[in-house]
């Protein structure tokens, strides 16, 4: 079947979709947006969390056909999404194109890798606080944390833990993730 929906502000079309495919599979394998991760595919880890019409959901449990006509925001679009939220519609959209995403090759990383990339406050906070190790849980945690700070700009520790209780991390022991969310909240309140 064919499925049409909007991802990170861009209309997307996927063809020859098998009816049992998840939104996660379509994003990763058909639209060249592998940022949402495939850790459990049973709604028990949150690595695939995306916003579906604004609501955080596990994209592994959304049938691709259920996304028809709807708006999806993935980690790849999070910086733009956050920017739009701050400055309204005047910002324009970007997002990764299919071609860009598919041109992956093993490239070196250096102190400039990703330099000039505009990050959302929560993305920057995750880097600064040391909340990223292997990074496989990171995309889902970023989408969930961003949504938390959108509706609660000054969450208590218990609020943060509750909001992120659907996102497993195996590397960090969560302490640096707590630090990152606190840091982003503090920067947000300072207007940095």
């Amino acid at each position: 079947m064919r499925v049409n929906f909007t991802v990170n502000g861009r209309p997307q079309e996927a063809d020859d979709v098998w009816e049992g495919e998840s939104l996660l599979y379509v994003l990763r394998e058909r639209l060249g947006l592998p940022g949402s991760k495939n850790a459990c595919e049973q709604g028990e880890c949150g690595s695939c969390t995306v916003r579906l019409d604004g609501v955080p959901v596990c994209s592994c449990l959304v049938a691709a056909g259920q996304a028809e006509g709807r708006e999806v925001v993935t980690v790849e679009g999070l910086a733009d999404f956050a920017k739009q939220r701050t400055c309204g519609d005047s910002c324009g959209t970007a997002g990764t194109s299919l071609d860009e995403a598919r041109q992956w090759a093993a490239k070196g990383t250096d102190s400039q890798t990703g330099e000039g990339t505009e990050l959302s406050p929560i993305q920057q906070a995750f880097i600064d606080a040391g909340a990223v190790q292997c990074g496989f849980c990171t995309p889902g945690l970023l989408v969930a944390s961003d949504e938390l700070l959108e509706r609660n700009s000054n969450p208590s520790d218990a609020d943060i833990r509750e909001a992120l209780s659907g996102n497993l991390c195996r590397c960090t022991g969560y302490e640096k993730i707590m630090d990152a969310v606190r840091l982003a909240a503090a920067r947000q309140s300072e207007g940095v």
Partner: peptide, 9 residues
């Protein structure tokens, strides 16, 4: 129920 993401769906 499960997690926030699941409760949303």
């Amino acid at each position: 129920v499960a997690s926030p993401q699941i409760r949303n769906r």
